[in-house]
Simulated scan of single mutants.
Amino acid sequence: MNHPFTFECQTCCPHTKARTGVFHTPHGIVETPRFMPVGTLANVKTVTPAQLAETGAQMVLANTYHLHLQPGEAIVQKAGGLHQFMNWKGPILTDSGGFQVFSLSELREINDEGVTFRSPRDGHFIHLTPEKSVEIQNALGADVIMAFDECAPYPASYDAVKTALHRTTHWLERCVKAHQRPDQALFGIVQGGVYLDLRQLSARSTIEFDLPGYAIGGVSVGEPPELIQKIVEATTPLLPFDKPRYLMGVGTYREMVQAIAAGMDLFDCVIPTRLARHANALVGGERLNLRNQKFREDFTPLDATCPCYTCRSFTRAYLSHLLRSRELLGYTLLSIHNITELVRFTQRIRASIQAGSFGEDFGRWLTLSS
C-alpha cells in the first residue's frame, strides 16, 4: 500500500450506495464524488491553469499516449514532471494510453506482449507494452497512473471480450512489477464489456492486487445508457469500500448521478470543453446552443446562479456574438462555465449526500425515462 494515498469514506446515503469521501494524494485532496476535467496534452483546452483552479476542479487528467507522441515523456521529465510542465498545483491522473491505442483499429496490431501501431503523426511504428506504459507514466509524474488494459469495442462477442479481459489481468500483473514510484498510485481497471459475469471475473482478479484504487473501464464506448447503468450497478459493489472508485470516460448529468448512487466516486469526460467548441452551454441540466437566434438579444447571464467568471461578467448576447464570430474568447468563456457547471453538479451531490437528501434532490436523474 502506498502511504501518500489514503481514502476516507465520510458519509453514506441510507437509501442508495452513494457516499462522500476524501482521497489524499501528494499534491492535495480530492473530495468525492467529483468530476475531473480532461487535459489531454497537459492542458484543458482553451483554459489557463488559473482559470481551471477557479472552476473548483481538484484533479485533472492528462493522456499518456498523446504526451508520448508529443512532446515525449523525456521532455516532461526534464521540466520536473507534469505538475511543473503545465503549472498545475493539484493532483493529476494519467490514463495508460490503452483506450487511444485500441481506437486506432486500422493502425494497430495486438498480441499478448503488447500493441504495435503506426504513429498518426509521422507513420513510424511504436510498440507499447504494459512496462512501457508504466515507464512513460513514471516519467510524466502524475499522482495517479492507470494500468495498461485492452478496451474491447462495443459490440464485441463474449469470447473476444473474455480474451481481452484475461490479457488485461495479465498486463496488470506486469504493470505492478514495472511500477517504480511509491509517490504515484497505480489504479487497476475492471473490463468485461456488457457481460456481467465477465465483469465479476475481472473485478475479482483485479482487486487481488490490493491497489490504491480501482476503475471501471470499457463503458461509454457506444453502448446504450441502460447497459452502462447495469454494468456500473453490478460492478461497483465488487470493488473495495475503502478505496476510491473511478468510472472512466463518463460525465453526463444522468450517468454520473446513477453511478454515484451505485457507489462510484470519480468521473472524467471531455464533454465540457467539447461542447464549448460547438457553442453549447450546460445550464441546469440542459444544453443551450448559443448560436441560436433567441440569444442574440438576451442580456441576462448564462446562469444567474453560477459563480464562474463567465456568468459574473458577461451576457448570453455577448457570448452568442463571440461564438457566431468564432472568436477564441467565446470558447474559453464557455469552457470555464461548462467545467464549473459539472464540478458544481458533483459538489451539490456531495452536499446532498451529507445532508441525507440525495434521493430526494436528484431522484429525477435516477430513472432512464425521466
Score class of each variant (00 low, 15 high):
His83Asn: 15
Ile216Leu: 15
Leu227Met: 14
Thr55Glu: 06
Thr163Leu: 14
Glu208Gln: 15
Ala164Cys: 15
Gln347Ala: 12
Asn280Gln: 14
His166Val: 09
Asp197Ser: 13
Asp95Ser: 03
Leu333Gln: 13
Val232Cys: 08
Gln229Val: 15
Gly284Ile: 03
Ser103Pro: 13
Glu327Phe: 10
Gly56Lys: 03
Pro120Cys: 01
Arg19Tyr: 13
Trp171Arg: 06
Ala304Lys: 14
Leu52Val: 08
Val30Gly: 11
Leu323Ala: 07
Glu106Cys: 11
Gly188Val: 11
Asn292Ser: 11
Gln70Thr: 10
Asp265Asn: 09
Ile92Lys: 04
Leu328Asn: 05
Asp143Pro: 05
Thr46Met: 08
Leu288Ala: 01
Thr129Ala: 02
Gln10Glu: 10
Phe102Leu: 15
Thr346Phe: 08
Phe209Asp: 11
Phe23Trp: 05
Cys306Tyr: 10
Val101Asn: 03
Ile336Thr: 08
Ala203Gly: 11
Gly217Lys: 06
Ser96Glu: 10
Gly263Cys: 02
Cys9Gln: 12
Ala50Phe: 08
Pro37Glu: 05
Glu226Val: 14
Thr94Met: 01
Glu8Ile: 08
Thr40Met: 00
Phe295Asp: 04
Phe125Asn: 04
Leu342Ile: 10
Thr346Asp: 09
Arg199Lys: 08
Ile136Pro: 02
Thr236Tyr: 01
Leu227Pro: 01
Pro155Glu: 05
Asp95Leu: 01
Thr64Arg: 00
Arg324Tyr: 04
Glu150Tyr: 08
Val283Phe: 02
Val250Lys: 14
Arg316Gln: 11
Ser220Tyr: 06
Thr206Asn: 04
Ala351Glu: 10
Ile110Val: 15
His278Pro: 03
Ile136Asp: 00
Ala215Tyr: 01
His337Ala: 00
Ser96Arg: 10
His124Thr: 14
Gly359Ser: 15
His278Asp: 03
His68Thr: 12
Gly123Tyr: 00
Arg245Met: 07
Leu140Arg: 09
Tyr154Trp: 12
Gln293Asn: 07
Tyr65His: 02
His127Asp: 03
His124Asn: 07
Ala152Pro: 12
Thr64Gly: 00
Cys311His: 07
